[in-house]
Amino acid sequence: MNTALEEFRPSAADEAAAAPSTLVAAAEVPRVVLAVDAYVLASPLLRLAPRGDGHPVLVLPGLLAGDWSTLALRRFLRRQGFHPYKWHLGRNVGPTAAVRAELPAAIERISRRNRSTVSVIGWSLGGIYARDLAHQHPEHIRQVITLASPYRLRTPGQSRAHNAYHRYSHLHAVEGDPAQVTGMSPHPLSVPSTSIYSRMDGIVAWQHCIEPESEQSENLRVRSSHLGIGFDPHVLYAIADRLAQPEGEWSPFAPPKALAPLFPAPDNPHQEVLDE
């Protein structure tokens, strides 16, 4: 059986992981302001990040966000020689019929227009969509990068976004929590994948953003917040590095020495550890 389709078996740590504390959640807003400031200050240095080959990159926003939230990321990617695409579906309120129909069509359209496979970056809920796209249409996907995406979410209490998600449940094509709705998201992918997560996440239990590493998958632990992870300069460097790899020559991320302290050793997803 294809390993990408093997049954997903949650561990005891998966079941026990709870949503971040109120204190960590409350720090999200000031920390995203700091991340944006850092992005602006580091913009000249980010020009030294790895450069791309012009291949298309579809960028998917998180819950209640739209293309405006990924503007800085897409500008950075364009400057570094990639061809970023918006998702063009307005505010992300969950798996609506439009989302479920348009994303597969968009991947096929972008791939055909560029005569190339497409890399997909998904932020939070957008990463759950990205992984499902890779399961459904691996022939069009070059690689998947997720940013603070809880694709192994098991219960509503493991995310502080639960109430916001279910506020729009009447618009969803199917009922249930994000990972349950998309179904295949927790399973290993058949294309290269990088999950970028932080123990400092104030929205989702970080344990649900990581998976066992394989020959073509990895977890990058960073020092970021949930809302600021798409602005932090060291995260943007890692994204560019992953995307700059020649197709078919994927290898694990190795940060330059100057940035190494910003990338702590990733966690074992099947072990419970204390939050920082």
Rank of each mutant, 00 (worst) to 15 (best):
R115G: 15
R9P: 01
P150C: 05
H187T: 13
V118A: 05
E211Y: 02
L5F: 08
L48I: 08
F263Y: 15
V144E: 14
A19T: 02
R78H: 13
P104N: 04
Q80Y: 02
F253G: 06
N114S: 14
E175R: 15
A258W: 11
S21I: 05
I229P: 10
A98Y: 00
E247Q: 13
L23G: 08
L147V: 06
A18L: 12
S224C: 07
A148L: 05
S190E: 15
S69C: 03
L45F: 10
R223K: 13
S21A: 10
G90P: 09
R221D: 10
P95G: 08
T146S: 08
S214I: 06
E175M: 11
R100E: 15
E6Y: 10
E108Q: 10
P264I: 04
L259F: 02
T155P: 00
V57I: 03
A72Y: 08
P252G: 04
L243E: 05
A179Y: 01
N163L: 14
S214F: 00
T70L: 06
F76H: 14
I141Y: 01
R112S: 14
H208P: 05
T194E: 06
H270Y: 11
A148Y: 05
A27C: 12
V36T: 09
I128Q: 04
Y129V: 11
A240W: 02
L60T: 03
A260I: 00
E6P: 00
H226P: 03
E175N: 13
H88N: 15
A65W: 08
G157Y: 03
G248V: 06
G183H: 03
P192W: 09
